Simulated assay, not measured.
Amino acid sequence: MLRTLTNAALLAAAPLVLLASTAHAQDAGQWSFQVGAATDNRSKDASKSDGDPFVFGTAEWESASGLFYGLGGLETIDGGGSKLENELALGVRPQFAGFDFDLNVAHKYRVDADDGYDDDAWEFTADMKRSIGPASARLRLQHSPDGTGSTKAWTWYEGQLGWDFTPKLSGSVAVGRREQDNAIDYTGWNIGGSYALTRKMDLELRYYDTDADVPGEQYKSALVAGVSYAF
């Protein structure tokens, strides 16, 4: 019942996100960009690059109020014969009762995937965040009615706690659960930190693991190092 209700809520929010973004298209807003690389492409604590290094790039537009945004991104992967995945997303970031929310809908597409491979998916994400001094917390709910490949509907639940040790150094730990149709259910977790080497460049070191007992690199534990540059 809980899964049915949360899925329905995410699906219902999608047209509101699209409508709000369209209604505020006249807001000039501002653009930001980010590029980076890491020793593994981890999503929901599992590898999307079969344990190999990857590179990525994103472009984001944000309204002057900070409420509405849209983004596009590219990242290298290894799945279904595809080596590249693109993403387009629209979202809103409202504030309420001291909490920050992030609600978005994204479409992901795997370029040049094998014939017969399900190469695209819609994903709906809802984040609720709160920061008090150096401490922060986030709850995340994600759902796709039909994932890529043989995976059908899936839902991801995650809780994260963070701490800013200095203006440049921060750390966090997160635990999540993924429930999937036609694929393995698993629990994953990660712990690590990031350091602002400069105002625009961040270094990150994070350890990932899952309880999935599956051959291959996708669900294995890994220590991942990465670097990103924002401009």
Rank of each mutant, 00 (worst) to 15 (best):
L2T: 13
R3E: 08
F54A: 07
W156K: 06
S228A: 11
G149D: 02
Q30N: 15
A174R: 07
D115T: 14
K48F: 12
A97I: 08
T125S: 14
V92S: 13
V227G: 12
D114M: 05
S82T: 05
G216P: 11
E123M: 06
K48D: 13
D146G: 04
A97N: 14
P53I: 11
D78W: 02
Y117W: 12
D112S: 14
S32A: 10
L141D: 02
D50P: 12
R177C: 02
V111R: 10
Y208N: 11
V175L: 12
S82M: 06
S172P: 07
L205I: 08
T6Q: 04
Q34L: 01
D213A: 05
L223N: 07
H143E: 02
A97C: 09
R199W: 03
K129E: 05
Y69N: 14
F231S: 06
E75C: 04
V92N: 11
I184M: 00
S63N: 13
W122M: 06
R177G: 07
A230T: 11
P145Q: 00
A196P: 07
G79V: 06
V214L: 07
Q218G: 06
D146T: 10
Y219E: 00
Y208T: 03
T210F: 00
D112C: 11
A174F: 03
Y208L: 00
A25N: 11
W122C: 02
A89C: 08
D40W: 02
A46R: 04
Q218E: 08
G73K: 01
G72N: 07
A12L: 02
Y219D: 01
P53D: 10
P53F: 07
E158P: 11
L84N: 12
Y69F: 15
P94Y: 05
D100S: 08
R93F: 05
I191Q: 01
A25C: 08
I184T: 13
A135Y: 08
S82F: 05
V175Y: 08
D127W: 04
V55L: 09
A38L: 03
F101G: 06
Y195V: 05
F124W: 00
L223G: 08
P15R: 09
S21A: 14
R138H: 04
W156D: 08
F56D: 03
S221A: 10
G162R: 04
S144L: 00
L18R: 13
V92W: 04
K129H: 03
A225G: 15
M128N: 04
D119Q: 06
V105M: 03
V92C: 11
R110C: 06
G81Q: 09
Q142F: 09
W122F: 09
V173K: 00
K152M: 04
L139M: 13
Q160G: 02
Q95H: 12
M128A: 15
D112I: 08
L203T: 01
D209K: 02
A212L: 00
L84H: 09
D50I: 06
E85Q: 15
S221Q: 05
T151P: 07
T198S: 15
Y69D: 04
T39I: 08
L161I: 12
Y109P: 03
F56S: 10
E179S: 14
Y195Q: 08
S170Y: 01
L90M: 14
K48T: 11
L84C: 09
G79Q: 12
S43G: 13
D211M: 00
G147W: 09
